[in-house]
Amino acid sequence: MAILECKELVKSYGKAAALDGVNLTVESGHIVGLLGPNGSGKTTLIKLANGLLTPTSGEILVDGKKPGKETHSVVSYLPERTCVPLWMSTRKLLDFYQDFYADFRRERAEEMLQHLNIRMDQTIKQMSKGTREKVQLIMVMSRAAKLYLLDEPIGGVDPATRDYILNTIINNYDPEAAVIISTHLIADVEQVLDEIIFINQGQIVLQSSVDQIREEKGMSVDALFREVFKC
């Protein structure tokens, strides 16, 4: 079943089109890489799917509905920048998610936090950048959502943290759900992807399964990306 559909989707900022006639379908049960250079429209598409922006024209549907109040209960969103208040302790953050989201699986979140030796009384401000990234991802992935939208989840963190983040994504999403990972770090995420969407200058360049790329093109997703987007 399609969890995300875009039909002739356009989003403009003034005269500049961030998305220009996007058509795509993302099915449940897949981890999808939304891949493109910086400024290609990845974040705009993710914000539209999360209801943070409204289309200029065309249509976007999440679980068959326009993004908004109804779809917030099925979408779990990780923004590009940490948006958790720095004064919050780990415990207060858990309380907040439990109060706010009916599908939040607190026990799962606590288990992962314990694994990282993060104290319940530690504040976000006291954590390193990598730890903050991990904590925010744990909160997002501890929801039993239908669609996970992860905007640059591995940008700016060390390789060990990247491995932890990718393992957390694989091990904690419902197989009936879909995960969309927006990134330009292709080699790092390729191993977890089922499908890819190449986007450039607001337009979809390619949508394909990873297996199909390897079989038909005889190359990795990273190699194909470099070929398609070479300067």
Rank of each mutant, 00 (worst) to 15 (best):
R81K: 08
P55S: 13
Y97P: 04
T44A: 08
V74R: 02
L61V: 00
L35S: 11
G51A: 06
A18M: 11
T54D: 09
G39D: 07
H30N: 14
H30W: 00
A17F: 07
K92E: 15
L93P: 05
S57L: 13
K65L: 07
S73T: 14
K92Y: 03
P79K: 10
V84G: 00
H30P: 01
L19G: 04
R108T: 06
P79A: 12
V32Y: 01
V75H: 03
L19M: 01
T90F: 03
L78Y: 05
I46Q: 02
K92F: 02
K42T: 11
D20Q: 15
L53Q: 01
T82H: 11
E107F: 12
I60C: 02
S57I: 10
S89A: 07
F104H: 02
E107I: 13
V74Q: 01
T90C: 13
G39E: 03
K66A: 15
W87S: 13
H30C: 05
Y101K: 04
D99V: 00
G36A: 11
R105G: 04
S76M: 06
R81I: 05
S40N: 08
F96G: 05
A102P: 05
K92A: 10
G58N: 10
S89Q: 15
I60Q: 06
F104W: 02
T56I: 09
E59T: 10
K47N: 10
M88P: 04
L93G: 07
V84S: 06
K42I: 14
E70C: 11
K65W: 01
V32I: 10
S76H: 11
T44W: 00
A102K: 14
I60L: 14
A49K: 04
H72K: 11
E70M: 09
D103N: 09
R106F: 00
G58K: 10
L19T: 08
L78R: 04
G29A: 02
P85E: 14
D20A: 14
A17R: 15
D103M: 00
T90S: 08
R108A: 15
Y97M: 01
L34C: 09
N50G: 13
P79E: 10
L34I: 10
